[in-house]
Nucleic acid binder design. Structure first.
Length: 857
DNA sequence: GCAAGGTC
């Protein structure tokens, strides 16, 4: 019997498809990457019965990146990213998707691709074919590999697709390849350049990454555009007439609305005032309705979660994802907002009826069922609907609110429209017309389920009769001002993105999240998006240099070019080369003109030299340097115009100590009493003076022969945990003392309260560690005999045992690992004639003296 | 450390 491998885009879909195609008679086994394989036997084309094996991927198998040579931000000029080589890498190496696919493909004669029917799906088809090409013979032949085209996950559609298999579309797949390459090159080039240009330039610029992207930047652009509209808004004063008449009294609206000239308004007021009565010109009434909602798709779900529930799209989708995996709702990522023809709406309604929260509404709708509205069938997944009844207690608060919304929205879609009657009375006073409207609810319709949309109170109107006269109670002139637009709400932003084709239903929340996390916008009450100074300055900068960089039309223009590839009317390489050329030119122009963006930064942020506080002295000019705390933390010497990177954590001036090599003031780094700490020289930290001292190392890695802070002076023994580390006495926090490994995180607290500890020349005869001399103040001695000073081994001396934390573990470890003989004496060798080589447990740096000599030359 | 697109 022949075998057929079938692959869907996600595990859930593989399960549904297998269920349909096998008529519910398939077996399933779970792979260790989250993808299951379903098997059954059935007829296939003209092969008679075959063995079907249906599995899935998890979205894309591969992703595009630069080759490793081009991943360095320091060594690669970003402009190279437009031409440098790229390579496809497995998206998630842990999943081992390629080997999983080729394993599942073993023994298969045919491949049927059930990827989502969009361009990305078409691209994944080829990723799958590539993964199994060595297993399925002739996989690129049209007699071996087929493509299923389906537009809904229904019995009819799926079986229909199986009957009319086509072939994967190379052009559509290539258009995705082109998109990936363009996004990668453009995004990374601009991001690296901007980041490196502005980083370290302004002290109070709180961002270590200044990103650019063809989707995120226009998204930010929308927010800043609204901000600018608000800033540029000039309020105008207007006037309008208010007429009070009728029994009971009502205030009527002026048909002119508003006038912007006060003298005209006063003139019209005076004309009205000449009359004591108004004439009822007409009273009319008509029925109006508000449409029930369309079936729910992802974008609408995100919009309403944001505007109605105050839950952001990113979180909303996380919640929806969880509800989906727990079986409470259908697949939450879909563009379709129209139920499939044979969708069993009644079944969904029935499952909601027992609910204590909305069961009454569900039962009412079931006896008054209405056909849902038509919408758009994007051919991906059915709309989002409830699948299982959940109770309030099953969820946390927000999850329940999202679930309840989905249920009530579903009921709304099969309810009646809301109906109301509008009555309008038109009154004439001289030549001026005034109107009064009153709305009365006739049928609450879908708002019975969607209670938050409920119609307002019924409005009353005096019994105006056409042709009669009504006494005027009052007429007055009112003054008001036009107001600025409000900041963009998240829901409005989603709509704008959707309209301009910025992102997809799945990526829209990611882009919004990005511009928040990068500190370009902040979300304020009412989920309004307020751009930050950084966001505003960035967008204004693009507008000054090249406005297209921030326009939403950029993306649509690129999409248009990509569609040409997909349609087969343009060559992949031609389009790609053309687009890259344009963007490279834009990039070069941007780099040349970055000064005009920098001017905006300058007026919004403080240049480095003015920010930060005087801290420690520069060894070159002996002036104080500035300490800039915002990440990346650094010292800046404004006189020498040099930056010195600092370790992440607490950095303080270390008394008056100086580095004997370069005269820079020493600093003390710490991450708290229980964390690592060491003294360091800011110059050596960035420019290690010795070959065996690592970059970004402290004095505890420095092999200076005589400096009182060096490894050579303060080293005690080799580390108890790691292979290459040395335990070094740390005095920076005295009277708290500790031994800290200069490689790993081992810390041994000891001799708390001691006033002085020195490392002696001599070694412990038992373990080889350097002996230490410990001094306490006379009245604060911690020694059992009350003495002020003692010398001994931290690990072996019994007088010290109670003053060293973890000393037992340390001692036993020391003994077991061979203590003094471990690499010690031999390596110290003849070069270490002063016997200091053995000081730190016998691991002196090789050829230390030679290196020192080289340095001092 | 970077984009955007799938999906968990």
């Amino acid at each position: 019997m022949k075998s057929v491998l079938m692959v869907a885009e996600k595990p859930s879909l593989a399960a549904s498809l297998a269920g349909i195609l096998s008529n519910g008679r398939c077996t399933a086994k779970r792979g260790n990457n989250g993808c299951s394989t379903h098997e059954w036997t059935g007829p296939f084309r003209n092969e008679g019965n075959v063995h079907f094996r249906m599995t899935s991927v998890c979205g894309h198998v591969m992703s595009l990146d630069f080759t490793s040579k081009y991943t360095s931000w320091d060594k690669v000029d970003p402009v190279q990213l437009f031409d440098c080589p790229t390579e496809k890498k497995e998206c998630n190496p842990k999943q081992q998707m390629r080997s999983f696919l080729s394993h599942e493909a073993r023994g298969c004669d045919y491949l049927v691709l059930w990827l989502d029917c969009d361009k990305e799906g078409e691209n994944i088809c080829f990723e799958v074919m590539d993964a199994v090409q060595h297993v399925i013979h002739n996989v690129y032949s049209t007699y071996v590999t087929y493509r299923a085209h389906f537009s809904a996950i229904t019995d009819k559609d799926i079986k229909g697709a199986m009957e009319s298999l086509g072939h994967p579309n190379k052009n559509e797949a290539k258009s995705v390849d082109a998109r990936q390459e363009l996004d990668l090159r453009i995004g990374c080039a601009f991001t690296r350049f901007q980041t490196k240009f502005f980083q370290g330039r302004y002290g109070d610029l709180d961002s270590s990454l200044i990103s650019y992207g063809p989707c995120q930047t226009p998204t930010l652009g929308f927010c800043v555009k609204r901000h600018d509209d608000i800033q540029l808004f000039k309020p105008e004063t207007f006037w309008y007439l208010q007429l009070v008449a009728g029994q009971p009294e009502v205030t009527l609206e002026w048909a002119r609305g508003r006038v912007f000239k006060k003298n005209i308004a006063i003139m019209l007021l005076n004309r009205v005032k000449e009359h004591k009565e108004a004439t009822v010109e007409s009273v009319s009434s008509k029925e109006s309705f508000r449409s029930k909602p369309q079936a729910l798709n992802t974008v609408e779900l995100m919009r309403i979660c944001s505007s109605g529930l105050g839950i952001g799209p990113f979180q909303a989708m996380q919640i929806a994802e969880r509800l989906y995996t727990q079986g409470y709702i259908s697949y939450p990522r879909t563009e379709t907002n129209q139920y499939p023809e044979n969708f069993d709406l009644h079944a969904v309604l029935r499952l909601l009826q027992p609910s204590g929260d909305f069961g009454d509404e569900a039962r009412a709708i079931s006896s008054d069922f209405q056909t849902p509205r038509k919408g758009k069938d994007a051919g991906d997944h059915p709309p989002i609907t409830p699948m299982k009844l959940g109770q309030r207690n099953d969820f946390d608060r927000d999850t329940w609110r999202v679930y309840e919304f989905i249920c009530r929205h579903f009921m709304g879609t099969i309810s009646r429209d809301l109906k109301y009657r509008t009555t309008t009375a038109k009154l004439k006073v001289g030549l001026e017309t005034f109107t009064c409207t009153a709305n009365v609810l006739l049928d609450a319709g879908f708002t019975k389920a969607m209670t938050w949309l409920a119609f307002g109170k019924d409005e009353a109107m005096p019994p105006f009769v056409q042709g009669t006269q009504v006494p005027i109670t009052d007429v007055r002139l009112a003054e008001s001002q036009t107001g600025p637009p409000d900041y963009l709400t998240e829901a409005e932003l989603i709509t704008l993105m959707e309209q301009h084709g910025i992102g997809t239903d799945a990526s829209i929340p990611v882009h919004i999240n990005n511009i928040c996390q990068r500190n370009y916008v902040k979300i304020e009450t009412g989920r309004k998006l307020i751009p930050t100074t950084l966001g505003i300055v960035l967008v204004h900068g693009y507008q000054k240099i090249d406005p297209e960089l921030v326009l939403p039309t950029m993306r649509s223009e690129v999409e248009r070019m990509l569609t040409l590839i997909a349609k087969g009317s343009a060559d992949f390489n031609d389009v790609l080369r053309h687009a890259i050329k344009i963007f490279k030119l834009k990039f070069v122009y941007f780099v040349q003109n970055i000064a005009s963006m920098d001017m905006l930064f300058e007026s919004s942020f403080s240049p480095l030299a003015e920010s930060g506080k005087a801290h420690s002295r520069c060894g070159k000019c002996r002036r104080y340097m500035k300490y800039i705390q915002t990440k990346p933390a650094r010292l800046y010497c404004s006189h020498c115009n040099d930056n010195y990177t600092l370790p992440n954590g607490n950095v303080k001036v270390y008394r008056e100590f100086k580095c004997p090599l370069d005269d820079f003031g020493l600093l003390a780094f710490s991450t708290g009493v229980k964390g690592r700490s060491f003294p360091f020289c800011p110059y050596c930290y960035n420019h290690p003076p010795f070959r065996d001292m690592p970059k970004f190392g402290g004095c505890n890695t420095c092999t200076h022969p005589t400096c009182p802070h060096s490894l050579n002076t303060l080293g005690i023994s080799s580390c108890v945990e790691c292979e290459t580390g040395v335990l070094v006495l740390d005095s920076t926090l005295s009277p708290t003392w500790k031994l800290g490994c200069n490689r790993c995180d081992v810390i041994i607290n000891c001799f708390k309260g001691a006033t002085k500890i020195t490392v002696e020349e001599n070694k412990c005869s038992e373990c080889g560690a350097q002996l230490v001399n410990v001094v306490y103040k006379s009245d604060k001695s911690k020694f059992k005999d009350g003495s002020e000073e003692k010398s001994g081994c931290v690990f072996c001396s019994s007088e010290f045992a109670h003053l060293v934390e973890k000393h037992r573990a340390v001692a036993s470890r020391q003994v077991r690992s061979g203590g003094p003989s471990r690499g010690g004496g031999g390596a110290a060798g003849p070069g270490a004639g002063n016997a200091r080589g053995g000081r730190h447990g016998g691991r002196p740096p090789k050829d230390k003296m030679a290196q020192l000599a080289a340095y001092f030359v």
